[in-house]
């Protein structure tokens, strides 16, 4: 899987590259508009992470370029602006997702995986890890060939873990992911704890070949 990261901030670029590299993706980078345009028109990628504000031009221009060339890449816009208009414009132009800075890397992973999964035309859209299969479109889970009934938050949680297997995801990141985050983080982290406890119970009862482990009270990890 090849991912192109278009981002002018070198430090952020390296963080994203590191994070995606750990997931086994091959990453390429472009730090400005021309470089990005060059790479887009020359190579094929599975996913493109696109910053909107770039030296030399707008990310949205690049996006229309990608779409004009009927490229099949999944495009995720990464923007510091988090403005509704940008989001709407980006999605209208054919972006697959929109991620506002600052984001958790686990969330980026989840989004990249979703975007690639949705673009995957000749396969099923399900996410599988060990004997757990999630169908994000129908929000159903199959463990050990049997349906597992989860409530909405539990499904979101499991999806988050499965798209970030074997990685430590900290509590705040989990809370923000399942909670959505309009303004304040309203829930206490106890809530996350109780949700995870329920999920663990359900997974082990269903005979899942996975467990969610607490890591020193800092976060959780599925393995």
């Amino acid at each position: 899987m090849k991912i192109l990261i278009i981002e002018d901030e070198a430090a952020l670029l390296s963080v994203i590259r590191d994070a995606l590299g750990r997931e086994g993706y091959i990453t390429e980078i472009a730090a400005d508009f021309d470089q990005a345009l060059d790479k887009i028109s020359t190579y094929e990628y599975d996913c493109i992470l696109l910053d909107i504000m770039l030296p030399g031009g707008s990310g949205l221009e690049l996006l229309s370029e990608i779409k004009k060339n009927k490229k099949k890449e999944a495009v995720i816009i990464i923007s510091a602006k988090d403005s509704v208009e940008d989001k709407v414009n980006g999605l209208d132009l054919g972006a697959d997702d929109y991620l506002a800075k600052p984001f958790h890397l686990a969330e980026l992973n989840a989004r990249v995986k979703s975007a690639i999964r949705r673009k995957n035309q000749n396969g099923d859209h399900k996410v599988q890890w060990r004997n757990i299969t999630l169908d994000p479109d129908n929000r159903t889970v199959v463990v050990n060939n049997a349906d597992l009934l989860l409530n909405r938050k539990e499904f979101d949680l499991l999806y988050y873990f499965v798209t970030n297997p074997n990685r430590l995801i900290n509590k705040t990141s989990i809370a923000e992911y399942v909670w959505g985050d309009y303004t304040d983080q309203a829930s206490s982290l106890d809530f996350v704890y109780s949700q995870i406890k329920n999920l663990r119970k359900k997974l082990s009862t269903a005979g899942a070949d996975a467990d969610i482990l607490s890591v020193y009270g800092v976060g959780y990890k599925i393995s």
Binding site: E9, A11, L12, V15, I16, D18, A19, R22, A80, K101, P102, F103, H104, L105, A106, L168, N170, S173, V218, G219
Partner: peptide
């Protein structure tokens, strides 16, 4: 984003 990303990677 950089700072929290780096910390996440580090952790």
């Amino acid at each position: 984003a950089i700072a929290s990303g780096k910390l996440e990677l580090f952790m």
